[in-house]
Design a binder for these strands. Structure first.
Length: 425
RNA sequence: GCGGUAUUGGUGAAGUGGUUAACACAUCGGUUUGUGGCACCGACAUACAUGAGUUCGAUCCUCAUAUACCGCCCCA
């Protein structure tokens, strides 16, 4: 093999593509119900944009950015996540202007890139469907965002999913909490794992979701963000929760939930799947949160925002296990035209075109195969009907429409083919 | 970025330091004339990821590279 695909990328072949179409169509239609519209932004942006938005110390930026220098010597990066580009576009196109309805609700879909070692549920190029809503800070919107995500997952028929919820509070909450956390952890510095010792310097919050067993023991008694929330932040989070409860969304509070990107504050959440598709190991399939400072940090006017991203590969992995869904989505051939010999080629070519215009899915053989082979082919493609066409048929203008599921044949005139097939499908 | 395992045809795979790389599935063709899903018959790897080395000789040994899978970090 001379050429192979780049490491960590995937070809989506026709058989799986139907699942992708289904997933994306479902997500889009549900987002539309909530008033979202599509927005398309570049797949690469200035490297700086991602550094400023995600945070220099975040792993996504520090070691996973797919960077390159273009011919104009500009430092660019393939987008590692969707929010930064959308926010940039929001600011650049002045979508904060008074003539735009607030909140501005947009969704996007497409590939993201992270330079990392491929493994289960993770690749270098992966696709996300995401939404962002700008300009409104209202607990109802936070709750609605989570519900929208839940809605999509439910519509896809995916089970074994739990909503995990936390708040990072507002700036004052976070500041006082951070201080308390560092004060608590510093005496343990020697005991912490190496990774966590570095985190203590750079991003102490991340120690909270360390997987190191000993780290976890230390964390158990660490101060909790919930005890450091300002009254406003507490009240806000309470309302988000009560709205979720009101709508019957089951969620679990997890005050160790932080998120990899620095721009989040207030409500953050993840939808975690724990099922067979990933060996019953919990894996996040949808995650997001509120980012009230990001627009301002990237040079726009103060504008609160909230959104989430959904990992399409991970969803597909789950959907693929649903065999009845997969087979339901396979394309259906209505009619296979079987030619007795090459003399009817032109006739079949025209007839097929004619029937397609009438809305029937028609295929035929191009390889000069025997009648028997053509029928095998029709069978393999699960064609619903076949018509064998030879001299007799042309002479009498009388065809036998064969129903492949039971082998019955009914005589039809040329003009009746359409009606008969459409009546059955 | 670190660690582990793997890499044989369209697929699942067996296998050996030495003329013919098992078996199965799939595919194609056929089992007389224009009819499918069954059965039977036949065809189907000059080749064992790539490159180099050891050897009289390597798909099988060694090294490197690539990729895949799994784990860590991190994350969708």
């Amino acid at each position: 093999m001379i050429y192979q695909r780049p490491k960590g990328t995937n070809d989506i072949l026709p058989k799986e593509a139907t699942l992708w179409e289904y997933l994306e169509a479902t997500a889009k239609s549900i987002a539309c119900k909530y008033g979202y519209q599509e927005m398309r932004v570049p797949i690469f942006e200035s490297e700086k944009l991602f550094k400023r938005s995600s945070g220099e110390t975040s792993d996504v930026v520090a070691k996973e950015m797919y960077e390159f220098t273009d011919k104009g010597n500009r430092k660019m990066a393939l987008r590692p996540e969707g929010t930064a580009g959308v926010v940039r576009a929001y600011i650049e196109n002045k979508l904060y202007a008074p003539e735009y309805v607030k909140p501005l609700k947009v969704y996007y879909q497409g590939p993201m890139f992270r330079y990392e070692r491929p493994q289960s549920g993770r690749s270098r190029e992966f696709n996300q469907f995401g939404i962002e809503a700008f300009g409104v800070e209202d607990p109802r919107l936070d709750a609605e965002t989570i519900i929208l995500g839940w809605d999509i997952i439910a519509a896809l028929g995916i089970g074994h999913v739990t909503v995990t919820l936390n708040t990072l509070g507002d700036a004052p909450s976070r500041q006082s909490y951070l201080k308390a956390l560092v004060d608590y952890l510093t005496p343990y510095n020697e005991e912490l794992s190496k990774d966590s010792q570095i985190r203590l310097q750079k991003n102490p919050l991340r120690i909270l979701d360390s997987k190191d067993v000993h780290d976890q023991q230390i964390i158990q008694n660490a101060p909790k963000i919930t005890n450091y929330l300002t009254d406003d932040a507490r009240k806000y989070f309470d309302q988000v929760q009560s709205k979720l409860t009101e709508m019957g969304i089951n969620y679990q509070l997890n005050d160790d939930l932080v998120r990899g990107l620095d721009y989040y504050n207030h409500t953050i959440f993840e939808l975690v799947y724990t099922g067979e598709a990933f060996g019953n190991k919990p894996l996040t399939i949808l995650a997001g949160g509120r980012y009230n400072q990001l627009v301002e940090e990237l040079g726009g006017p103060h504008t609160p925002g909230i959104g989430f991203g959904l990992g399409e590969e991970r969803i597909i992995e789950i959907l693929q296990r649903d065999e009845s869904l997969v087979s339901k989505l396979q394309p259906q051939i209505d009619l296979f035209l079987v030619g007795v010999d090459q003399s009817v080629n032109d006739y079949i070519f025209k007839l097929a075109q004619d029937l397609r215009e009438k809305g029937i899915t028609v295929v035929y053989d191009y390889m000069g195969r025997s009648v028997k082979s053509q029928l095998k082919l029709a069978n393999r493609q699960r064609a619903k009907f076949t018509i064998v066409i030879g001299e007799d048929e042309l002479k009498n203008n009388e065809f036998k429409l064969k129903k492949m599921c039971d082998g019955t044949e009914i005589p039809v005139k040329l003009a009746e083919i359409t009606k008969n097939i459409l009546g059955e499908i």
